Simulated scan of single mutants.
Amino acid sequence: MSKWNDTLKLYDKLVDQCPDFKRKGKSMIYTSANGYMFSLLNKAGEIGFRLPKPVAAKFMEDYNTGYYYSYGAKMKDYVLVPESLYTNEALLIDFLNQSYAFVMSLPPK
């Protein structure tokens, strides 16, 4: 089993516990709402959440992580979810729901 497949299983498990949205994509895995993507699983098997700037800054400080990159590009407002949090599903679900709430607060695209 590859890291990407293991992370995909975790990502799907997290999204399945959030009734307001569904996982999208076949090769590029993501969630979106209101015209914005708000979580991603990149080809490196890394998960990123889109968060408001103050929440993102605190997340990066609290969990010793940084910005999220996909296809070599820094993703605006995204934080890299560190693998050390992969076992804390409740925390990840909370941040995934915060990510959803953030894009729902933006003007629709």
Results as ranks from 00 to 15, higher is better:
102 F>N: 05
72 G>K: 08
26 K>W: 05
15 V>F: 04
42 N>E: 03
33 A>P: 01
17 Q>H: 14
2 S>P: 06
21 F>R: 08
62 D>P: 00
48 G>W: 01
52 P>R: 05
46 E>V: 02
90 A>F: 05
73 A>P: 00
80 L>T: 10
85 L>V: 11
13 K>E: 15
31 T>I: 11
68 Y>T: 07
106 L>Y: 01
47 I>A: 03
81 V>K: 05
106 L>E: 01
5 N>L: 12
17 Q>L: 14
16 D>Q: 15
86 Y>M: 09
57 A>E: 15
42 N>M: 04
19 P>L: 08
59 F>M: 09
19 P>E: 10
23 R>E: 04
102 F>K: 04
33 A>L: 01
71 Y>S: 12
60 M>S: 09
84 S>E: 06
91 L>K: 12
94 D>E: 13
44 A>K: 14
5 N>S: 14
35 G>K: 03
90 A>Y: 08
8 L>E: 03
2 S>N: 14
21 F>S: 08
47 I>P: 00
36 Y>V: 13
4 W>P: 01
80 L>N: 11
21 F>I: 14
50 R>L: 07
6 D>V: 06
56 A>Y: 02
44 A>H: 07
81 V>S: 04
46 E>L: 10
95 F>G: 04
30 Y>G: 04
89 E>P: 02
59 F>N: 07
106 L>M: 15
74 K>C: 13
40 L>Y: 09
8 L>M: 08
17 Q>T: 03
87 T>Q: 13
69 Y>P: 00
5 N>H: 12
45 G>C: 09
109 K>L: 11
47 I>H: 00
17 Q>C: 13
11 Y>F: 15
59 F>E: 07
64 N>A: 11
44 A>E: 12
35 G>Y: 03
71 Y>P: 00
70 S>R: 05
93 I>W: 01
105 S>N: 01
53 K>F: 02
94 D>K: 15
87 T>K: 14
55 V>G: 01
45 G>A: 09
90 A>W: 00
14 L>E: 03
25 G>L: 08
15 V>H: 00
68 Y>S: 07
66 G>Q: 06
18 C>V: 15
33 A>C: 10
44 A>Y: 01
62 D>F: 01
95 F>I: 04
98 Q>G: 02
100 Y>N: 12
73 A>Y: 03
55 V>K: 10
76 K>C: 04
23 R>Q: 11
26 K>P: 01
43 K>C: 06
11 Y>D: 06
99 S>R: 09
29 I>S: 06
79 V>H: 01
108 P>E: 02
45 G>F: 06
92 L>A: 09
9 K>F: 06
13 K>I: 06
94 D>S: 13
77 D>Q: 11
12 D>W: 03
80 L>K: 12
33 A>Q: 10
1 M>N: 04
94 D>A: 12
19 P>Q: 09
87 T>L: 10
48 G>V: 05
96 L>Q: 02
24 K>G: 10
42 N>H: 02
54 P>F: 10
106 L>N: 03
64 N>D: 14
67 Y>E: 09
34 N>L: 11
20 D>P: 00
68 Y>L: 12
109 K>M: 09
56 A>V: 02
40 L>S: 09
108 P>I: 02
37 M>E: 08
16 D>H: 07
34 N>F: 08
97 N>Q: 15
8 L>D: 03
86 Y>S: 02
94 D>M: 12
73 A>S: 12
78 Y>V: 01
65 T>H: 10
68 Y>C: 05
46 E>F: 00
76 K>L: 08
64 N>E: 15
102 F>T: 08
83 E>H: 05
12 D>Y: 05
72 G>Y: 05
